[in-house]
Design a binder for these strands. Sequence first.
DNA 1: GTGATATACTAAATGTTGTTGATTATCTAG
DNA 2: CTAGATAATCAACAACATTTAGTATATCAC
Lengths: 167, 167
Amino acid sequence: MTQVHREQHAEGERTPFDEIERSLMQISWLAQRQFMQLLDDERFRLTVPQFYTLLHLEPLTEACKMSDLAEATHQSAASLTGVVDRLDEKQLIERVRDAKDRRQVMVAVTTYGRELVAEIKQARREQMQMALAHLAETEIEALMVLLDRVLSGMARTLERAEGGRLA
Amino acid sequence: MTQVHREQHAEGERTPFDEIERSLMQISWLAQRQFMQLLDDERFRLTVPQFYTLLHLEPLTEACKMSDLAEATHQSAASLTGVVDRLDEKQLIERVRDAKDRRQVMVAVTTYGRELVAEIKQARREQMQMALAHLAETEIEALMVLLDRVLSGMARTLERAEGGRLA
DNA sequence: GTGATATACTAAATGTTGTTGATTATCTAG
DNA sequence: CTAGATAATCAACAACATTTAGTATATCAC
């Protein structure tokens, strides 16, 4: 039933570009839904923005300024405060005032936060394996390369579109 | 399945699978943000669920039952009612009671709704072209095929995960 | 020190999605 | 005709993200 659209409508031919566009749109939607379901699991109880904020902190060895975090995760500072509040309540991150510049608040993931991210990634991995189970190994590798290139392009357009909006 | 090559990677090292996973996560996040920005434009003023609901109706030649629409867009019936309400207010869709079974409400996109979807797609296309501008034609084609396969896998896992939850 | 700027937070308001459980209208089986 | 199922909605509520504008604190240039 996900292919319903394929059927008809020949007012203007479908180009490969249209197909990619549609695929990306549907992937975006399905991925989001699927991931929301996962994050909503009783083990995690996270929202999507909360997770991606946490995900950005997770690999860092040092704490991260709020403003940098906002920029990196493409959220406004005011919005981020709320998100970080909720992560803080759950003890997934820690807020520390910077000693040098006491205006700044440095955010760092806690051990528990790291563990949770690992758990989520593992759960996600299992979902993903099911989704990619029917791809050959060479296809996986090709996909990896292509996605990387798409990603870099998307990041660029996003940054361009933001011009000052979140500043 | 494809765990084979995982073993030969040292701990802490990124496997191709990890890379795809990370790319998909980031694409999902960036795509969502980017798209939200676009839909929030004064021309459209739509939310993501509203758009995907509309997108599902757009290619259909006939009206669609609420319950079918809910299933197809992976939303609960009660939730969908609200979404459709807002699409209705904006005159992007029309609700008609089915003549045969008067319990059913059939939803169909309006001409204006189709126009708006076309506009959004066009705007999206421009964003997308910027993002894909650096890919070769053969890469685009390869990407198209792969995305299609990923998509079908994702749809399957999503449906499996939903088992009864939205019924 | 003073004034301007930077940083993060707060408050208040808005809108959306989502859930649960009840409700209305309709259909169908017997 | 009645009992029960079905389709969609409604009501009431919770949670979140988001925006705007304002505030407290700290820094820096002078």
